[in-house]
């Protein structure tokens, strides 16, 4: 009897140990976001502009779209920082620091460039995690630094010389505006 009891106790103890082991989770793995961010940091160190976006949904396509939108929003913010740095170096290069006309042309050009660059930005890598019907997608988005830097400098050098003529515009918009003003004049006469 004593032997049976001891055997039973050992079995129960063994079961407890097994359950305990099973319930413990040893986590040494990084989150998917941190994995992507590590990749982005490597791109950023190399001079690129790289960000991670995150999107969550019960549908994979929507989760992916959300992550792309999130990545592009982060990219716009990161680009802004990049553009500030480029702005400083451009002004130093052309020796016109403090020239507000240059700043205007620069901000106009960078706005246009940033929007076209964002339109052309494509995801570089992706991690998908599925958990209880919920899909989370992490997207790595990168902009090629040499293309962006050189394009920006080229555009600026082009636009710098043309800035005078930008103020006077020969355009079909003149007809629309003129019609508006003529209609306004007529309304004033009627009154």
């Amino acid at each position: 009897m004593k032997k049976v009891l001891i055997l039973l106790l050992l079995v129960v103890f063994g079961l407890i140990l097994l359950t305990g082991c099973g319930s413990k989770e040893v986590s040494g793995k990084k989150s998917p976001y941190m994995q992507m961010q590590k990749q982005a940091n490597q791109y950023n160190k190399a001079g690129a502009v790289a960000v991670v976006g995150q999107g969550e949904s019960s549908r994979e396509d929507i989760a992916r779209k959300k992550s792309h939108v999130d990545a592009r929003a982060n990219l716009a913010e990161a680009l802004n920082v990049k553009v500030q740095t480029l702005s400083k170096s451009f002004l130093e290069e052309v020796g016109t620091t403090g020239d507000t006309e240059i700043n205007e042309a620069f901000s106009r050009t960078t706005k246009t460039m940033a929007s076209s660059v964002l339109k052309g930005s494509l995801p570089e890598d992706e991690i998908m995690v599925e958990d209880e019907g919920k899909i989370t997608i992490y997207t790595l988005m990168v902009i090629n630094p040499s293309t962006f830097n050189q394009s920006l400098m080229d555009e600026m050098n082009k636009s710098k010389n043309k800035k005078l003529y930008e103020r006077f515009r020969s355009s079909q918009a003149y007809d629309e505006l003129n019609n508006e003003m003529e209609a306004y004049e007529e309304s004033q006469i009627e009154e």
């Binding site: 700043n103 901000s107 106009r108 079909q172 003149y174």
Partner: peptide, 17 residues
């Protein structure tokens, strides 16, 4: 800052040009 963004223009007729 001294920065400004000029988004105004003087529009004239292409026919006149």
């Amino acid at each position: 800052s001294d920065k400004k963004n000029s988004e105004y223009f003087y529009y004239f007729s292409p026919k006149e040009l």
